[in-house]
Amino acid sequence: MKMTPDETVFWSHGFVTINLTLVTTWAIMLFMVVGAKLITRDLKSNNKISRWQCVLEIIVTSINEQINDLGLPKSELYIGFIGTLFLFVAMCNFWIILPWYQPPTGSLSTTTALALCVFLSVPYFGIQKSGIGGYLKTYIQPTFIMLPFNIISELSRTLALAVRLFGNIMSGVMIIGILLSITPLFIPLVMKALGLLTGMVQAYIFSILATVYIAAAVQESVKKDKKIKKKLTTN
């Protein structure tokens, strides 16, 4: 039994390997982009909108609100990254309802890639918001003694992100595989349903954590902005 889709290799040439993880990812990407394109090609701003447009609006506005609730005021700056993170993970996990499907998130390579993206996005958004100096200052908050701990925290949380998602999804797939060989009827179905729930929860947790990390990096400058605004209003 193959533990991850990485092990199913279609084509390999030296370092380059085309495995099931990549193929499935491309398929999901294609599905998402084509779906988004199809639905958004005929958007209407009046009251008579299509059902699919309504669904997409709900998803997008919900993500937007979540980002806002977590302390990122200009959510449109982050929705591209955080929203895609959520939708991609959710899509990967959603298709486990199909038989013989192995989600790309069950591959440690994919989760590592996503965790690395989050790891890199934190300084990216932090620097974008408050400059290099402002961002680096967050490492010596509240005192410079905290610097090593902050660095360790940064690395460990990335590792935790990658392993958490991978562990959850992979274990779900593993449990279903094992159960299929023991009790082929009914029980795997229930477990798939449970896996679907777990997958959605993981997608949510992954994107929420990413948002929290980004918010923590951006927070300092947001606080400063608020102080300035408060001063302006009191004056």
Binding site: T17, N19, A36, S109, T112
Partner: peptide, 26 residues
């Protein structure tokens, strides 16, 4: 094991997806 080619490919895939989704959805 971590397949580093897959990791890099997935990072690229993800960034492309972010760009596409930004353009076609958000």
């Amino acid at each position: 094991q971590i397949n580093w080619f897959t990791v890099i490919a997935q990072i690229l895939n993800f960034l492309v997806l972010v760009w596409l989704m930004k353009r076609y959805l958000y």
